[in-house]
């Protein structure tokens, strides 16, 4: 029997909150034990050995000591602090959205190595300035799968008939796509039409690895459609709107209007 009071985990810090004057409570998603809450004593002091190692969006190896309620962080060695991601407003917002997604879909102490690997994969991709739209949608699909909400994309979620290459509909309460026939008969609340193209992309992403997924070239309207459908499903499952997503949407709007202004100005010149 292991009687050691300390143990080591590898994890990504999802969020932190202040505890008293100088301490912090960290929520960490670890590869070994799933989501954990630990206390970093003295982490708010500028001379703390943890400064910089306990910020969200940090991948680190941590030595924890068993505490009465929450375990205590005793040592932390950063593996990757995703510095490039943190230097870019858009990518930083994407990273925070990913962290909130993981935090919302996981419960403490429930281990999920594949989700941990996927989390590291997307953070590395965002850090390397990959196409953030593809990376986010692919990660959302992976997350749904590992959380037990893999959408049904092959057959109608109501009549179980194979889906035809036509405009279908995504029904969050049924956990997948429903055919136009069932959609009109059942009159569900679904507001998510899924084009043939979008369904093809979803099916491919559900079965392929990220290296294959990122080869797809998404047109703007298809990207919006995929985002719309997945967002509908996620907010239905969580029963709430993720706050970081609102920030992401706001930034997207601002960046688009900025691009439009730049294009108009170029045209004037």
């Amino acid at each position: 029997m292991n009687t050691s009071r300390t143990y080591q985990v590898e994890g990504v810090i999802l969020k932190q909150a202040r505890l008293g004057e100088n301490d912090r409570i960290l929520t960490v998603f670890t590869s070994e034990l799933g989501k954990l809450r630990v206390v970093a004593k003295g982490a708010c002091s500028p001379r703390s050995k943890f400064t910089g190692n306990v910020e969200p969006l940090t991948h680190a190896v941590m030595l924890l000591a068993k505490g009465r309620n929450l375990d205590i962080l005793t040592q932390s060695q950063t593996i990757n602090n995703f510095l490039d991601l943190k230097k870019d407003l858009w990518r930083l917002a994407c990273g925070l959205y990913v962290l909130e997604l993981v935090d919302s879909f996981t419960i403490e102490g429930s281990e999920s190595r594949p989700l941990f690997t996927s989390l590291l994969e997307i953070l590395n991709e965002l850090n390397a300035a990959a196409n953030s739209e593809i990376a986010l949608r692919y990660f959302e699909l992976r997350l749904l799968r590992y959380a037990g909400y893999r959408p049904q994309l092959q057959r109608c979620a109501i009549c179980d008939q194979p889906l035809r290459p036509e405009l279908n509909f995504f029904e969050p309460s049924k956990g997948g796509i429903v055919c136009p026939h069932c959609y009109s008969r059942e009159n569900p609340k679904a507001r998510y039409p899924v084009s043939v193209e979008a369904l093809k992309v979803f099916r491919l992403w559900q079965s392929c690895d990220y290296a294959t997924a990122k080869r797809i070239k998404l047109k703007s309207n298809l990207s919006t459609e995929l985002d719309h459908v997945l967002h509908g499903h996620i907010s239905y499952l969580l029963g709430k709107e993720l706050k970081s997503r609102l920030w992401l949407q706001r930034l997207k709007k601002e960046l688009l209007s900025k691009e439009r202004t730049a294009t108009v100005n170029q045209g004037v010149c």
Partner: peptide
């Protein structure tokens, strides 16, 4: 690095 801090304990981000 803050004055009085030890280099050994500085995190990679700050030191970088």
């Amino acid at each position: 690095l803050p004055f009085g801090a030890e280099l050994e304990y500085a995190d990679d981000l700050t030191l970088g």
